[in-house]
Design a binder for these strands. Structure first.
Lengths: 243, 243
DNA sequence: TCGAGTATACTTGTATACAAGTATTATAAC
DNA sequence: GTTATAATACTTGTATACAAGTATACTCGA
């Protein structure tokens, strides 16, 4: 009956992951990509059957996804919330909030090591573009921001990031995959923005940092559009599922 | 052997809670109160035996506590992180961050209903003080801030609060219990701060809101000191546990 | 044809069983 | 006494079993 859907999450990122994490990552991708639609009701038994695992890792995954605000655990079944434009805007509200906070801490710190680290990541991003590796690019993009956030050693800001990260990761993955084939110069612009960000950190230039953040977020709207595009693509390529 | 420790978390708040939640709430209180010390290693089997439940709800509880940054899940055993003064400062960093964000949204909204709701909660707090009910007071205090945060309907800000709330709740519970017997006028000051907060929201007075927030956070230092006090009290009242 | 009540099938939450892996301890060899 | 190896006891992760509760659907009655 239901077609076997290809795995969306990069399997090589899951080498050390438990079954529960695998289910969470894959299910997250399916929700964010729109394969699993908002409002759908997920049953533990059904998911366990779909992924050919027991209910234990499925339960674990559902709890994770609930804490990421992607589903809502109810009496009977988990209701998919998914990401509408509203949610994506909200995510970027929070990113703006925490990255601004982080920057305020950074201006009081020695950022030499951080700048070096970020430059390394940036070069890796360039290599990823050169070889049109969207997944690797996404990984480094996430890593870039995580490195900045980690550098201030603030466990509760990091906690927020830890909750946001998986969703961001999926979002960026899907967006980059949709863009890497054609919109080549999008990536050079992203690189430029990140270079600006590094420069802002190095010179501790608040205004520049805000500017680069906003440029970064101006991309968001496009990212979102790309996401809807990729949702269209994906859902068109999949047969209507019977239940 | 190990003494049977009284339950710290109000049992009547757990009427509809699952076993997993009960374990999480109680364990959280024990960690924050200092009964379970930082650095301690928790084993699922041991906890299950202590609470006379199976490993399933214990696993669930540990995952919850890990997402709240109270423990760190490692290969063998969960390491207790707990709350030092550093963590508590960080928690209030985040509260300041999100409550400021919320206020910026509030100034663009109709706050009439909210103000009414907050006034009601404030009256309940007064009653709780009158009858020296520290638990009820704590509940309403938490509810006060949650009501404000919920009012802007921002799911990802709410997500941050949801992660912070249980820790805040435990912290406030312990602090209020330690203070309600003697430091009576502390509570009238808290009430005054909250009245100021409501007034700031009603008049959309940014400066007043910042002032009341800061007054609120000036109390933090005392709260923390009270927490250490109560940790002393509790640990002195408990025999050294053999392992 | 419509409504009430019961039976059935499916839901989650918890307990238990099992497997794979890790640390520790004891033992043996040098 | 020290080191290396092996055995043991404990760890987590996953699967399965069971119990309690809920929604659905069907049957019986009017």
């Amino acid at each position: 009956m239901s077609e076997s859907i290809d795995f969306l999450y990069p399997t090589k990122w899951l080498s050390k992951a438990s079954t529960g994490e695998r289910v969470a990552c894959e299910l997250r991708m399916r929700i964010i990509s729109g394969i699993v639609e908002s409002g759908a009701i997920l049953s533990e038994n059904k998911l366990a059957a779909d992924f050919s695992v027991s209910r234990s890792p499925v339960r674990e995954a559902l709890k994770t996804l609930a804490s990421e605000n992607l589903i809502r655990l109810e009496r009977m079944g988990a209701v998919v919330i998914g990401l509408t434009e509203k949610e994506i805007k909200e995510i970027y509200d929070v990113r703006l909030l925490i990255e601004t906070f982080v920057f305020e801490r950074l201006v009081k710190m020695d950022v030499q090591e951080l700048v070096k680290e970020l430059s390394k990541i940036l070069e890796m991003m360039k290599v990823a573009i050169k070889y049109k590796d969207a997944d690797e690019f996404s990984y480094q993009d996430i890593m870039f921001h995580e490195t900045i956030i980690r550098s201030i050693h603030h466990s509760y800001i990091l906690m927020i990031w830890d909750n946001l990260k998986p969703v961001m990761e999926s979002l960026i993955l899907l967006s980059m995959r949709a863009r890497i084939k054609e919109k080549y110069d999008d990536f050079t612009r992203i690189i430029n923005n990140h270079e600006l960000y590094i420069e802002a950190i190095r010179t501790k230039d608040r205004a520049l940092m805000i500017e680069s953040l906003h440029k970064n977020f101006d991309d968001v709207q496009e990212k979102v559009e790309d996401l809807w595009m990729s949702q269209q693509m994906l859902t068109k390529g999949v047969e209507q599922q019977d239940d």
